[in-house]
C-alpha cells in the first residue's frame, strides 16, 4: 500500500502545484488545501502503514501503529485549516479593496512610492 500512497501523495502535490501557479486566487487557495493533503499522506506513509492496531492502549494488543506521525499530522491539519481560513479572508478583502481576484491585475506599480 505504501507504493500507492506515495504515488498518490506525489500526484496530489503536483496537481496542487499546478493550481497554485494559476492566476486566480481561489484556485491558489484550492492548491494550498490540496498540497497539505498530499503532505499529510506522505508523512503518514513515512511512519509505515497498518503495522499494528490503532494507537490506543489495550492489554490484548502487541503492536501499535506509529503514533508520532499521527500526532504531528493532527497538528498540521489544524494549522492548514488556519492557513486556509486566513488566505480565504485575505482573498475576500483583496476583492473588496481592489475589485479583482486575478493576481496579475493586483500587482500595481512597485515603484509607486
Amino acid at each position: 500500500m505504501e507504493l500507492i500512497t506515495i504515488i498518490l501523495a506525489g500526484i496530489l502535490m503536483g496537481a496542487a502545484a499546478y493550481l497554485m501557479l494559476s492566476k486566480n486566487l481561489i484556485r491558489i487557495i484550492f492548491g494550498t488545501a490540496i498540497f497539505s493533503h498530499g503532505v499529510h499522506l506522505m508523512f503518514l506513509t513515512m511512519g509505515e502503514l497498518k503495522r499494528g492496531a490503532v494507537p490506543v492502549l489495550d492489554e490484548n494488543v502487541e503492536a501499535y501503529a506509529d503514533p508520532l506521525p499521527q500526532a504531528l499530522i493532527l497538528t498540521a491539519i489544524v494549522i492548514a485549516f488556519a492557513l486556509t481560513a486566513i488566505i480565504l479572508v485575505l482573498a475576500l478583502r483583496i476583492y473588496k479593496e481592489l475589485g479583482t481576484n486575478d493576481i496579475e491585475k493586483m500587482k500595481g506599480d512597485p515603484y509607486a512610492d
Binding site: I7, A9, G10, I11, G14, A17, Y18, L21, M42, T45
Partner: peptide
C-alpha cells in the same frame, strides 16, 4: 504543467 509534473515526480522519488 511541466513544473507540476516535475514536482510530482520529485515528491514521489523523495518519498
Amino acid at each position: 504543467l511541466i513544473i507540476s509534473v516535475g514536482v510530482a515526480l520529485t515528491a514521489i522519488i523523495i518519498g
